[in-house]
Design a protein around this nucleic acid. Structure first.
Lengths: 197, 197
DNA sequence: CTTAAAGTAGACCAGTCAGTCTATTACAAT
DNA sequence: ATTGTAATAGACTGACTGGTCTACTTTAAG
C-alpha cells in the first residue's frame, strides 16, 4: 500500500459527495465516476462502503483538526477572539457552499447515529475531540479573567458545540447564516461575559 | 377519498421508519410491509416518494403543534416554566427512543436540505412556526419582567431552537441526554435571566 | 530474467429501488 | 340492475445498489 494517491482521490471525492448528498444517497459508483477510478481499486483499498465511510470521517477529522488547532490554540490571540475567528470561518464556509454542505460530522451524526453504532462511536469521538479544543480555549479565557469561573468549561464547551451545530442546521434549512450570527451574538452577549464583581 | 384509514396507516408507518432510519434509507416496500398495504394503494394516495415524505412532514408538524401549543401557550403556567416543561418532554422522548430518533424535522433538515428545495422549504416552515411559539412565550416572560427586554425575542427564539436541535444531535451521537441538560442549564443560568436593575 | 505481490480494470451478480401496469373488488349514484 | 369511480392488490420493469470475480498491468525483490 505504497501508492496512496488512488486511495486519497477516492476519499476526497467521497468526502465531497457525502458532504453534499449524505452517506446513503451517495453511491459508490458515483464516487468512482467523479474521480475516474475503477471499482476494482475501490475494493482493493476498502473492504466495504462502511469501511470507506469511516475512512472519510477519519480523514476529515484529521485535516479539520489542523484548522481547529490553528484557530483555537493560537496563543498570540486572546481566547475569546480565537472563538470569534472560529465562528467567522464557519460562517464563511457556509457561504462558500451556498448553505448546502454545513458540517460533515454533524450531517453524518444525524443520518447514521441511529443506523450504525460503529459510525456513531466514530462521530462521537470527533465531537468530543472538538469539545476538548473548546475547553482549552475557555480555560485560557477563564485564566485571563475574560469570562466567569463559576461555569465548568466542559459544560460551556458542550453548550457551544451543541448551539453551533444546531445553528448550522438552521442555516441550511433557512439558506442563510443568520441563525449562526444570532447564536454567536447572544453567546458573547450573555454567556461568555466577564464576571460581575 | 373518503376512507383515509389506509393513507393514515402509511403515514404513521412512514413517520416511524423515517424517524428511525432517515428518508433515503427507508424504502417504500419497507413501509408497505410494516403496515400490510399493497403498493397499488400507496401510489393511489401519493404521487411519489417525495409527495409521501412531504405528507409525513405535514402530518408530524400538525400533530406536534398541538403538543407545542399545550406546552408553550398554557397561560396557567409561568412562561419560563412552560419552556422548562417543553425541554423536559423533549428529554423524556429522547429517553423513550433510546437516543436514536431525536427530532424528525431536525433529522430531515440535515438529510434533505441540500437534496431538494421543496423539502427544505417545508422543513424551514415548520422550524419557523416553532420559533413563533417560542417568541410568544418569551414575550410573555418579558411582559412579566422574568427576563430582560434588551434582547429581541425573535433572536432569543432562534438561539433556543438552534441550541436545542444541536443538543438533540449531540445526544444522539453520545447516546445520552447530557448535552440537552447542559444546554438547558446554561440557558436558564445565563440567558433567560431577570434584568439586573 | 523470474516471480510474487500490489494495484488497475471493468464485466458481472443478486438484490433492491421507486415507480408502472393491469386486474379485481367495493361502493355510490342513477 | 347498471354504471362509474375509489380503492385494493401485487406482479412486473428498468435502473441502480453494494459487492464479487477474473484478467491484466505495474512494480520491486531475488
Amino acid at each position: 500500500m505504497k501508492n496512496n494517491v488512488t486511495r486519497d482521490k477516492l476519499i476526497d471525492s467521497g468526502a465531497q459527495l457525502i458532504s453534499q448528498q449524505g452517506y446513503n444517497a451517495t453511491g459508490i459508483n458515483a464516487v468512482l465516476k467523479t474521480c475516474g477510478v475503477p471499482k476494482g481499486s475501490f475494493y482493493h483499498y476498502f473492504s466495504s462502503k462502511e469501511d470507506f465511510g469511516l475512512a472519510v470521517i477519519e480523514h476529515f477529522a484529521t485535516t479539520y483538526d489542523e484548522t481547529l488547532v490553528a484557530l483555537l490554540e493560537d496563543s498570540d490571540t486572546p481566547p475569546l477572539e480565537r472563538l470569534k475567528r472560529y465562528f467567522a470561518v464557519g460562517r464563511d464556509h457556509m457561504h462558500e457552499c451556498d448553505h448546502t454542505t454545513g458540517c460533515l460530522i454533524g450531517n453524518l451524526g444525524q443520518e447514521l447515529s441511529g443506523q450504525s453504532d460503529i459510525f456513531r462511536d466514530a462521530l462521537n469521538l470527533v465531537f468530543q475531540r472538538w469539545e476538548q479544543r473548546f475547553v482549552h480555549c475557555l480555560q485560557a479565557a477563564q485564566a485571563r479573567g475574560d469570562i466567569a469561573k463559576h461555569i465548568a468549561p466542559e459544560a460551556l464547551a458542550s453548550f457551544i458545540l451543541s448551539g453551533w451545530e444546531g445553528a448550522i442546521l438552521r442555516a441550511k434549512t433557512l439558506k442563510s447564516v443568520e441563525p449562526m450570527e444570532q447564536f454567536e451574538k447572544i453567546l458573547f452577549q450573555q454567556v461568555l461575559v466577564r464576571p460581575s464583581p
